[in-house]
């Protein structure tokens, strides 16, 4: 299987690992890292697409995703700082009072 399919399946694999990581990890910070990972995985798929179709749409979009994920993670980590100051813990299970 040629390079493009390799890239495609590689990216897909990374996305799946990222999502599974989000579900399984306990620490909030690691959850955020895994989400970052899944977003980057998608970039790989996009780049594979643009190689296959010889146009730059995929590349532009992957470039924009970098910006967006960076912005998102920045705000997310800031909020995490606030949480640690207030709740002194990063364990996800503690953040489950709102229910019903």
């Amino acid at each position: 299987m040629n390079q493009v399919e390799l890239l495609f399946y590689g990216g897909l694999l990374i996305v799946i690992i990222g999502l599974l990581g989000v579900i399984s990890r306990k620490n909030l910070l690691s959850i955020l890292m895994f989400q970052e990972l899944s977003l980057n995985g998608v970039n790989l798929v996009l780049v594979a697409g643009s190689i296959l179709h010889h146009n730059y749409h995929g590349a532009i979009l992957s470039f924009i995703t970098f910006i967006v994920t960076a912005a998102e993670m920045a705000i997310a980590i800031l909020i995490l700082l606030l949480l640690i100051k207030k709740r002194k813990t990063l364990d996800v299970t503690f953040y489950s009072e709102l229910k019903g």
Binding site: V15, L19, V22, L32, Q35, S38, L39, V68, E72
Partner: peptide, 8 residues
């Protein structure tokens, strides 16, 4: 968290 999974 939900939003980032959504964007992914």
């Amino acid at each position: 968290i939900i939003d980032s999974t959504l964007t992914a």
